[in-house]
Design a protein around this nucleic acid. Structure first.
Lengths: 219, 219
DNA sequence: ACTTTTTTGTACCATTTCGCATTTAATTCC
DNA sequence: GGAATTAAATGCGAAATGGTACAAAAAAGT
Protein backbone atom coordinates (compact mmCIF):
# COMPACT_ATOMS: atom_id res chain seq x y z
CA UNK A 1 0.00 0.00 0.00
CA UNK A 2 2.65 2.52 -0.91
CA UNK A 3 0.95 4.08 -3.92
CA UNK A 4 3.68 6.24 -5.37
CA UNK A 5 2.44 8.37 -8.23
CA UNK A 6 -1.14 9.27 -7.45
CA UNK A 7 -1.36 12.99 -7.01
CA UNK A 8 -0.85 14.23 -10.55
CA UNK A 9 -3.64 12.73 -12.61
CA UNK A 10 -3.18 15.48 -15.15
CA UNK A 11 0.59 15.27 -15.25
CA UNK A 12 0.27 11.52 -15.46
CA UNK A 13 -0.86 11.86 -19.01
CA UNK A 14 2.47 13.37 -19.80
CA UNK A 15 4.83 11.17 -17.84
CA UNK A 16 2.98 7.88 -18.18
CA UNK A 17 1.11 8.16 -21.49
CA UNK A 18 -1.58 5.62 -20.69
CA UNK A 19 -0.07 2.20 -20.09
CA UNK A 20 2.68 2.05 -17.47
CA UNK A 21 2.92 -1.65 -18.40
CA UNK A 22 2.16 -3.08 -15.02
CA UNK A 23 3.13 -6.65 -14.44
CA UNK A 24 0.09 -8.74 -13.45
CA UNK A 25 -3.64 -8.73 -13.99
CA UNK A 26 -4.90 -5.22 -14.64
CA UNK A 27 -7.15 -3.51 -12.14
CA UNK A 28 -10.82 -3.48 -12.95
CA UNK A 29 -11.39 -0.20 -11.14
CA UNK A 30 -10.00 3.29 -11.15
CA UNK A 31 -8.86 4.16 -7.65
CA UNK A 32 -9.85 7.80 -8.02
CA UNK A 33 -13.45 7.12 -8.97
CA UNK A 34 -13.79 4.31 -6.45
CA UNK A 35 -12.61 6.65 -3.72
CA UNK A 36 -15.15 9.18 -4.93
CA UNK A 37 -17.96 6.66 -4.51
CA UNK A 38 -16.73 5.73 -1.07
CA UNK A 39 -16.61 9.39 -0.17
CA UNK A 40 -20.23 9.81 -1.22
CA UNK A 41 -21.33 6.99 1.02
CA UNK A 42 -19.35 8.00 4.07
CA UNK A 43 -20.55 11.52 3.65
CA UNK A 44 -24.17 10.50 3.51
CA UNK A 45 -24.26 7.87 6.25
CA UNK A 46 -21.23 8.52 8.41
CA UNK A 47 -18.54 6.09 9.42
CA UNK A 48 -20.41 3.54 11.49
CA UNK A 49 -23.52 3.31 9.33
CA UNK A 50 -21.54 2.65 6.19
CA UNK A 51 -20.74 -1.03 5.82
CA UNK A 52 -18.05 -2.59 3.72
CA UNK A 53 -20.81 -4.25 1.73
CA UNK A 54 -22.26 -0.86 0.92
CA UNK A 55 -18.86 0.38 -0.09
CA UNK A 56 -18.25 -2.73 -2.12
CA UNK A 57 -21.52 -2.32 -3.97
CA UNK A 58 -21.00 1.37 -4.62
CA UNK A 59 -17.45 1.08 -5.85
CA UNK A 60 -17.97 -2.12 -7.78
CA UNK A 61 -14.95 -3.56 -5.99
CA UNK A 62 -15.36 -6.64 -3.85
CA UNK A 63 -14.22 -6.43 -0.29
CA UNK A 64 -10.78 -7.95 -0.62
CA UNK A 65 -9.98 -5.56 -3.45
CA UNK A 66 -11.18 -2.65 -1.38
CA UNK A 67 -9.06 -3.83 1.45
CA UNK A 68 -6.03 -4.26 -0.73
CA UNK A 69 -6.40 -0.89 -2.37
CA UNK A 70 -7.24 1.34 0.57
CA UNK A 71 -6.64 -0.62 3.75
CA UNK A 72 -9.29 -1.22 6.36
CA UNK A 73 -12.47 0.73 6.88
CA UNK A 74 -10.90 3.45 8.95
CA UNK A 75 -8.12 4.03 6.44
CA UNK A 76 -10.64 4.23 3.65
CA UNK A 77 -12.61 6.74 5.66
CA UNK A 78 -9.56 8.87 6.23
CA UNK A 79 -8.58 8.72 2.58
CA UNK A 80 -12.12 9.70 1.66
CA UNK A 81 -12.00 12.63 4.00
CA UNK A 82 -8.63 13.66 2.61
CA UNK A 83 -10.05 13.52 -0.87
CA UNK A 84 -13.03 15.61 0.19
CA UNK A 85 -10.80 18.28 1.61
CA UNK A 86 -8.63 18.28 -1.49
CA UNK A 87 -11.69 18.72 -3.69
CA UNK A 88 -13.17 21.45 -1.54
CA UNK A 89 -9.88 23.29 -1.37
CA UNK A 90 -9.42 23.03 -5.10
CA UNK A 91 -12.89 24.46 -5.67
CA UNK A 92 -12.23 27.47 -3.46
CA UNK A 93 -8.56 28.27 -3.67
CA UNK A 94 -8.80 30.31 -6.86
CA UNK A 95 -11.55 32.46 -5.42
CA UNK A 96 -9.66 33.03 -2.21
CA UNK A 97 -6.64 34.08 -4.21
CA UNK A 98 -8.57 36.16 -6.71
CA UNK A 99 -8.12 39.89 -6.71
CA UNK A 100 -11.73 41.02 -6.40
CA UNK A 101 -13.76 43.16 -3.99
CA UNK A 102 -14.46 41.56 -0.63
CA UNK A 103 -18.15 41.07 -1.04
CA UNK A 104 -17.79 39.52 -4.46
CA UNK A 105 -15.18 37.07 -3.26
CA UNK A 106 -17.29 36.03 -0.33
CA UNK A 107 -20.37 35.63 -2.47
CA UNK A 108 -18.51 33.31 -4.77
CA UNK A 109 -17.15 31.29 -1.88
CA UNK A 110 -20.59 30.76 -0.42
CA UNK A 111 -22.05 29.89 -3.78
CA UNK A 112 -19.49 27.12 -4.12
CA UNK A 113 -20.14 25.99 -0.57
CA UNK A 114 -23.86 25.76 -1.20
CA UNK A 115 -23.22 23.79 -4.37
CA UNK A 116 -21.12 21.34 -2.43
CA UNK A 117 -23.49 20.99 0.50
CA UNK A 118 -26.72 20.76 -1.45
CA UNK A 119 -25.63 18.35 -4.14
CA UNK A 120 -26.40 14.66 -3.91
CA UNK A 121 -29.01 12.39 -5.42
CA UNK A 122 -30.36 11.08 -2.15
CA UNK A 123 -30.66 14.43 -0.44
CA UNK A 124 -28.21 17.20 0.44
CA UNK A 125 -24.91 15.88 1.62
CA UNK A 126 -23.74 18.63 3.89
CA UNK A 127 -20.12 19.05 4.81
CA UNK A 128 -17.96 16.03 5.54
CA UNK A 129 -16.04 17.85 8.24
CA UNK A 130 -19.11 19.10 10.04
CA UNK A 131 -21.42 16.14 9.61
CA UNK A 132 -19.35 13.04 10.17
CA UNK A 133 -15.70 13.84 10.76
CA UNK A 134 -16.32 16.09 13.74
CA UNK A 135 -18.31 13.29 15.32
CA UNK A 136 -15.46 10.86 14.94
CA UNK A 137 -13.03 13.48 16.17
CA UNK A 138 -13.79 12.92 19.85
CA UNK A 139 -12.57 9.38 19.85
CA UNK A 140 -10.04 9.33 17.02
CA UNK A 141 -7.00 11.57 17.40
CA UNK A 142 -5.97 11.20 13.77
CA UNK A 143 -9.31 12.36 12.49
CA UNK A 144 -9.39 15.08 15.09
CA UNK A 145 -6.13 16.47 13.78
CA UNK A 146 -7.51 16.56 10.28
CA UNK A 147 -10.67 18.30 11.42
CA UNK A 148 -8.76 20.96 13.31
CA UNK A 149 -6.52 21.49 10.29
CA UNK A 150 -9.54 21.91 8.06
CA UNK A 151 -11.18 24.38 10.41
CA UNK A 152 -8.10 26.53 10.85
CA UNK A 153 -7.38 26.43 7.14
CA UNK A 154 -10.77 27.93 6.45
CA UNK A 155 -10.33 30.50 9.21
CA UNK A 156 -7.01 31.51 7.72
CA UNK A 157 -8.30 31.81 4.19
CA UNK A 158 -11.13 34.06 5.33
CA UNK A 159 -8.69 35.92 7.55
CA UNK A 160 -6.48 36.77 4.58
CA UNK A 161 -9.56 37.95 2.71
CA UNK A 162 -10.61 40.34 5.42
CA UNK A 163 -7.10 41.57 6.14
CA UNK A 164 -6.65 42.26 2.48
CA UNK A 165 -9.96 44.09 2.33
CA UNK A 166 -9.07 46.20 5.31
CA UNK A 167 -5.76 47.20 3.75
CA UNK A 168 -7.66 48.27 0.68
CA UNK A 169 -9.98 50.39 2.74
CA UNK A 170 -13.03 48.20 2.14
CA UNK A 171 -13.49 47.86 5.88
CA UNK A 172 -13.54 50.42 8.66
CA UNK A 173 -10.43 51.04 10.73
CA UNK A 174 -11.74 49.28 13.82
CA UNK A 175 -12.65 46.07 12.05
CA UNK A 176 -10.95 42.94 13.35
CA UNK A 177 -10.18 40.58 10.45
CA UNK A 178 -9.78 37.56 12.71
CA UNK A 179 -13.20 37.96 14.28
CA UNK A 180 -14.82 38.53 10.93
CA UNK A 181 -13.09 35.44 9.59
CA UNK A 182 -14.46 33.35 12.42
CA UNK A 183 -17.93 34.64 11.70
CA UNK A 184 -17.47 33.84 8.03
CA UNK A 185 -16.43 30.29 8.96
CA UNK A 186 -19.37 30.07 11.33
CA UNK A 187 -21.66 30.99 8.48
CA UNK A 188 -20.17 28.17 6.44
CA UNK A 189 -20.83 25.82 9.33
CA UNK A 190 -24.39 26.90 10.01
CA UNK A 191 -25.18 26.53 6.33
CA UNK A 192 -23.73 23.05 6.21
CA UNK A 193 -25.90 22.02 9.13
CA UNK A 194 -29.07 23.56 7.78
CA UNK A 195 -28.49 22.11 4.36
CA UNK A 196 -28.36 18.70 5.94
CA UNK A 197 -31.76 19.35 7.49
CA UNK A 198 -33.05 20.06 4.00
CA UNK A 199 -33.53 23.76 4.50
CA UNK A 200 -34.15 25.01 0.94
CA UNK A 201 -31.42 26.81 -0.94
CA UNK A 202 -33.38 30.04 -1.04
CA UNK A 203 -33.35 30.29 2.74
CA UNK A 204 -29.70 29.47 2.94
CA UNK A 205 -28.94 32.16 0.40
CA UNK A 206 -30.92 34.62 2.47
CA UNK A 207 -28.88 33.72 5.53
CA UNK A 208 -25.69 34.23 3.56
CA UNK A 209 -26.88 37.58 2.27
CA UNK A 210 -27.71 38.76 5.77
CA UNK A 211 -24.34 37.61 7.03
CA UNK A 212 -22.52 39.41 4.23
CA UNK A 213 -24.44 42.59 4.94
CA UNK A 214 -23.09 42.50 8.46
CA UNK A 215 -19.58 41.28 7.72
CA UNK A 216 -18.86 43.61 4.84
CA UNK A 217 -19.85 46.68 6.78
CA UNK A 218 -18.73 45.68 10.22
CA UNK A 219 -17.67 48.01 13.02
CA UNK B 1 -46.07 3.17 25.62
CA UNK B 2 -48.54 5.85 26.58
CA UNK B 3 -46.71 7.27 29.59
CA UNK B 4 -49.22 9.71 31.02
CA UNK B 5 -47.78 11.66 33.90
CA UNK B 6 -44.12 12.12 33.20
CA UNK B 7 -43.40 15.80 32.75
CA UNK B 8 -43.77 17.13 36.28
CA UNK B 9 -41.09 15.36 38.34
CA UNK B 10 -41.22 18.17 40.85
CA UNK B 11 -44.98 18.38 41.02
CA UNK B 12 -45.05 14.61 41.28
CA UNK B 13 -43.90 14.90 44.86
CA UNK B 14 -47.07 16.73 45.61
CA UNK B 15 -49.64 14.84 43.63
CA UNK B 16 -48.15 11.38 43.94
CA UNK B 17 -46.28 11.45 47.27
CA UNK B 18 -43.90 8.63 46.43
CA UNK B 19 -45.75 5.37 45.90
CA UNK B 20 -48.56 5.42 43.35
CA UNK B 21 -49.13 1.81 44.33
CA UNK B 22 -48.47 0.24 40.98
CA UNK B 23 -49.72 -3.24 40.43
CA UNK B 24 -46.90 -5.61 39.47
CA UNK B 25 -43.19 -5.94 40.12
CA UNK B 26 -41.59 -2.58 40.73
CA UNK B 27 -39.15 -1.17 38.21
CA UNK B 28 -35.51 -1.45 39.06
CA UNK B 29 -34.61 1.74 37.18
CA UNK B 30 -35.66 5.35 37.04
CA UNK B 31 -36.73 6.20 33.52
CA UNK B 32 -35.42 9.75 33.77
CA UNK B 33 -31.89 8.79 34.75
CA UNK B 34 -31.82 5.89 32.32
CA UNK B 35 -32.79 8.23 29.51
CA UNK B 36 -30.03 10.55 30.62
CA UNK B 37 -27.47 7.77 30.28
CA UNK B 38 -28.79 6.83 26.87
CA UNK B 39 -28.58 10.46 25.84
CA UNK B 40 -24.94 10.58 26.87
CA UNK B 41 -24.11 7.58 24.73
CA UNK B 42 -26.00 8.67 21.66
CA UNK B 43 -24.48 12.07 21.93
CA UNK B 44 -20.97 10.74 22.11
CA UNK B 45 -21.14 8.01 19.50
CA UNK B 46 -24.10 8.84 17.29
CA UNK B 47 -27.00 6.61 16.40
CA UNK B 48 -25.36 3.83 14.41
CA UNK B 49 -22.27 3.42 16.57
CA UNK B 50 -24.28 3.06 19.75
CA UNK B 51 -25.37 -0.54 20.24
CA UNK B 52 -28.19 -1.79 22.37
CA UNK B 53 -25.59 -3.60 24.42
CA UNK B 54 -23.87 -0.31 25.12
CA UNK B 55 -27.16 1.27 26.09
CA UNK B 56 -28.04 -1.70 28.22
CA UNK B 57 -24.73 -1.52 30.05
CA UNK B 58 -24.92 2.24 30.56
CA UNK B 59 -28.49 2.31 31.82
CA UNK B 60 -28.24 -0.87 33.85
CA UNK B 61 -31.38 -2.09 32.14
CA UNK B 62 -31.30 -5.25 30.10
CA UNK B 63 -32.44 -5.08 26.53
CA UNK B 64 -36.01 -6.27 26.96
CA UNK B 65 -36.56 -3.68 29.67
CA UNK B 66 -35.08 -1.02 27.48
CA UNK B 67 -37.33 -2.05 24.69
CA UNK B 68 -40.37 -2.11 26.91
CA UNK B 69 -39.67 1.26 28.43
CA UNK B 70 -38.63 3.29 25.42
CA UNK B 71 -39.44 1.28 22.31
CA UNK B 72 -36.88 0.32 19.71
CA UNK B 73 -33.53 1.93 19.13
CA UNK B 74 -34.83 4.72 16.96
CA UNK B 75 -37.53 5.65 19.44
CA UNK B 76 -35.00 5.72 22.21
CA UNK B 77 -32.81 7.95 20.11
CA UNK B 78 -35.65 10.34 19.46
CA UNK B 79 -36.65 10.42 23.11
CA UNK B 80 -33.02 11.12 24.00
CA UNK B 81 -32.87 13.96 21.55
CA UNK B 82 -36.12 15.35 22.91
CA UNK B 83 -34.72 15.20 26.38
CA UNK B 84 -31.56 16.96 25.25
CA UNK B 85 -33.55 19.78 23.72
CA UNK B 86 -35.68 20.12 26.80
CA UNK B 87 -32.61 20.35 28.99
CA UNK B 88 -30.89 22.85 26.72
CA UNK B 89 -34.00 24.99 26.49
CA UNK B 90 -34.46 24.90 30.23
CA UNK B 91 -30.88 26.02 30.73
CA UNK B 92 -31.26 29.00 28.41
CA UNK B 93 -34.84 30.15 28.58
CA UNK B 94 -34.40 32.27 31.68
CA UNK B 95 -31.47 34.10 30.17
CA UNK B 96 -33.31 34.71 26.93
CA UNK B 97 -36.22 36.12 28.89
CA UNK B 98 -34.09 38.12 31.29
CA UNK B 99 -34.18 41.87 31.14
CA UNK B 100 -30.50 42.65 30.80
CA UNK B 101 -28.27 44.47 28.33
CA UNK B 102 -27.74 42.69 25.02
CA UNK B 103 -24.10 41.88 25.46
CA UNK B 104 -24.60 40.51 28.95
CA UNK B 105 -27.42 38.26 27.85
CA UNK B 106 -25.42 36.92 24.95
CA UNK B 107 -22.38 36.34 27.12
CA UNK B 108 -24.45 34.28 29.49
CA UNK B 109 -26.01 32.27 26.68
CA UNK B 110 -22.62 31.38 25.26
CA UNK B 111 -21.25 30.52 28.65
CA UNK B 112 -24.06 28.01 29.09
CA UNK B 113 -23.52 26.68 25.58
CA UNK B 114 -19.83 26.13 26.25
CA UNK B 115 -20.65 24.37 29.50
CA UNK B 116 -22.98 22.02 27.64
CA UNK B 117 -20.65 21.35 24.74
CA UNK B 118 -17.45 20.90 26.70
CA UNK B 119 -18.76 18.70 29.48
CA UNK B 120 -18.35 14.95 29.40
CA UNK B 121 -15.94 12.51 30.97
CA UNK B 122 -14.74 10.96 27.75
CA UNK B 123 -14.15 14.20 25.94
CA UNK B 124 -16.31 17.15 24.94
CA UNK B 125 -19.73 16.08 23.81
CA UNK B 126 -20.66 18.84 21.44
CA UNK B 127 -24.22 19.56 20.49
CA UNK B 128 -26.64 16.73 19.87
CA UNK B 129 -28.37 18.62 17.10
CA UNK B 130 -25.22 19.49 15.27
CA UNK B 131 -23.19 16.37 15.83
CA UNK B 132 -25.52 13.45 15.37
CA UNK B 133 -29.10 14.54 14.76
CA UNK B 134 -28.27 16.60 11.68
CA UNK B 135 -26.56 13.56 10.22
CA UNK B 136 -29.64 11.42 10.68
CA UNK B 137 -31.83 14.22 9.36
CA UNK B 138 -31.14 13.46 5.71
CA UNK B 139 -32.67 10.04 5.84
CA UNK B 140 -35.18 10.35 8.68
CA UNK B 141 -38.01 12.84 8.21
CA UNK B 142 -39.03 12.71 11.84
CA UNK B 143 -35.60 13.60 13.08
CA UNK B 144 -35.26 16.20 10.37
CA UNK B 145 -38.37 17.94 11.62
CA UNK B 146 -36.99 18.05 15.13
CA UNK B 147 -33.68 19.43 13.90
CA UNK B 148 -35.36 22.18 11.91
CA UNK B 149 -37.52 23.04 14.90
CA UNK B 150 -34.48 23.26 17.12
CA UNK B 151 -32.62 25.47 14.68
CA UNK B 152 -35.47 27.89 14.15
CA UNK B 153 -36.20 27.99 17.85
CA UNK B 154 -32.68 29.20 18.48
CA UNK B 155 -32.89 31.69 15.63
CA UNK B 156 -36.10 33.07 17.06
CA UNK B 157 -34.78 33.37 20.58
CA UNK B 158 -31.75 35.29 19.35
CA UNK B 159 -34.01 37.29 17.06
CA UNK B 160 -36.12 38.46 19.97
CA UNK B 161 -32.94 39.41 21.81
CA UNK B 162 -31.66 41.59 19.01
CA UNK B 163 -35.03 43.12 18.25
CA UNK B 164 -35.42 43.99 21.86
CA UNK B 165 -31.96 45.51 21.96
CA UNK B 166 -32.66 47.56 18.88
CA UNK B 167 -35.83 48.93 20.39
CA UNK B 168 -33.83 49.92 23.42
CA UNK B 169 -31.36 51.74 21.28
CA UNK B 170 -28.52 49.32 21.98
CA UNK B 171 -28.08 48.78 18.26
CA UNK B 172 -27.80 51.24 15.39
CA UNK B 173 -30.85 52.03 13.29
CA UNK B 174 -29.71 50.06 10.27
CA UNK B 175 -29.09 46.83 12.17
CA UNK B 176 -31.10 43.82 11.00
CA UNK B 177 -32.06 41.66 13.99
CA UNK B 178 -32.77 38.60 11.86
CA UNK B 179 -29.32 38.62 10.27
CA UNK B 180 -27.66 39.19 13.60
CA UNK B 181 -29.67 36.32 15.05
CA UNK B 182 -28.50 34.00 12.31
CA UNK B 183 -24.93 35.00 13.00
CA UNK B 184 -25.46 34.38 16.68
CA UNK B 185 -26.82 30.91 15.89
CA UNK B 186 -23.93 30.34 13.53
CA UNK B 187 -21.55 31.16 16.37
CA UNK B 188 -23.29 28.56 18.50
CA UNK B 189 -22.85 26.05 15.72
CA UNK B 190 -19.22 26.77 14.99
CA UNK B 191 -18.48 26.47 18.68
CA UNK B 192 -20.23 23.14 18.93
CA UNK B 193 -18.17 21.80 16.07
CA UNK B 194 -14.87 23.11 17.35
CA UNK B 195 -15.59 21.84 20.84
CA UNK B 196 -16.04 18.39 19.39
CA UNK B 197 -12.61 18.67 17.82
CA UNK B 198 -11.24 19.39 21.28
CA UNK B 199 -10.42 23.01 20.64
CA UNK B 200 -9.67 24.33 24.14
CA UNK B 201 -12.21 26.46 25.94
CA UNK B 202 -9.97 29.49 25.92
CA UNK B 203 -9.96 29.59 22.13
CA UNK B 204 -13.69 29.11 21.96
CA UNK B 205 -14.19 31.95 24.40
CA UNK B 206 -11.99 34.13 22.22
CA UNK B 207 -14.11 33.31 19.20
CA UNK B 208 -17.23 34.19 21.15
CA UNK B 209 -15.74 37.46 22.31
CA UNK B 210 -14.81 38.42 18.76
CA UNK B 211 -18.28 37.54 17.55
CA UNK B 212 -19.90 39.62 20.27
CA UNK B 213 -17.69 42.58 19.44
CA UNK B 214 -19.05 42.47 15.92
CA UNK B 215 -22.66 41.60 16.69
CA UNK B 216 -23.15 44.10 19.49
CA UNK B 217 -21.85 46.99 17.44
CA UNK B 218 -23.07 45.99 14.03
CA UNK B 219 -23.96 48.38 11.23
C1' DA C 1 -52.81 -18.81 50.05
C1' DC C 2 -53.71 -17.95 45.44
C1' DT C 3 -54.42 -15.27 41.36
C1' DT C 4 -53.17 -11.23 38.61
C1' DT C 5 -50.14 -7.93 36.97
C1' DT C 6 -45.91 -5.94 35.81
C1' DT C 7 -41.05 -6.28 35.38
C1' DT C 8 -36.67 -8.75 35.29
C1' DG C 9 -33.28 -11.98 33.49
C1' DT C 10 -31.73 -15.60 30.45
C1' DA C 11 -31.38 -17.35 26.32
C1' DC C 12 -32.05 -17.43 21.67
C1' DC C 13 -32.54 -16.25 16.57
C1' DA C 14 -31.73 -14.39 12.14
C1' DT C 15 -28.92 -11.07 10.09
C1' DT C 16 -25.17 -8.22 9.42
C1' DT C 17 -20.50 -6.99 10.04
C1' DC C 18 -15.44 -6.94 9.32
C1' DG C 19 -11.74 -9.18 7.90
C1' DC C 20 -9.14 -12.78 5.59
C1' DA C 21 -7.68 -17.32 3.28
C1' DT C 22 -7.97 -19.51 -0.88
C1' DT C 23 -8.82 -20.14 -5.45
C1' DT C 24 -9.31 -18.46 -10.08
C1' DA C 25 -8.45 -15.14 -13.85
C1' DA C 26 -5.74 -11.95 -16.66
C1' DT C 27 -1.57 -10.03 -17.96
C1' DT C 28 3.75 -9.58 -18.71
C1' DC C 29 8.35 -11.58 -19.00
C1' DC C 30 11.25 -15.25 -20.51
C1' DG D 1 4.01 -21.77 -24.65
C1' DG D 2 5.20 -21.69 -19.66
C1' DA D 3 6.62 -19.28 -15.33
C1' DA D 4 5.84 -15.26 -12.70
C1' DT D 5 3.02 -11.63 -11.10
C1' DT D 6 -0.85 -9.05 -9.97
C1' DA D 7 -5.70 -8.66 -9.14
C1' DA D 8 -10.56 -10.52 -8.96
C1' DA D 9 -13.93 -13.70 -7.08
C1' DT D 10 -15.70 -16.85 -3.89
C1' DG D 11 -16.67 -17.90 0.34
C1' DC D 12 -15.58 -18.78 5.16
C1' DG D 13 -15.76 -17.55 10.13
C1' DA D 14 -15.93 -15.38 14.38
C1' DA D 15 -18.07 -11.67 16.48
C1' DA D 16 -21.57 -8.28 17.02
C1' DT D 17 -26.18 -6.53 16.23
C1' DG D 18 -31.28 -5.59 16.76
C1' DG D 19 -35.00 -7.76 18.36
C1' DT D 20 -37.89 -11.23 20.90
C1' DA D 21 -39.78 -15.53 23.44
C1' DC D 22 -40.18 -17.34 27.67
C1' DA D 23 -39.68 -18.38 32.34
C1' DA D 24 -38.67 -16.60 37.00
C1' DA D 25 -39.51 -12.85 40.31
C1' DA D 26 -41.72 -9.28 42.92
C1' DA D 27 -45.34 -6.69 44.01
C1' DA D 28 -50.75 -5.83 44.74
C1' DG D 29 -55.60 -7.54 44.88
C1' DT D 30 -58.79 -11.10 46.51
Amino acid sequence: MVQKSKKPPSAAKIEAPVAPKRRGRPRAYEPEVALGKALDLFRRDGFAATSLDDLSAATGMNRPSLYGAFGDKRELYIKSYQRYRDDARAAMVDIFRADAPLRERLERIYRIALDIYLSGESGPRGCFTVMTAASEAVSDPGIRTMVVEGLTELDKAFGICFRHAKERGELPEGADPASLAHLASATIHTIAIRARARVPRKELEAIVKGALDVLCAAK
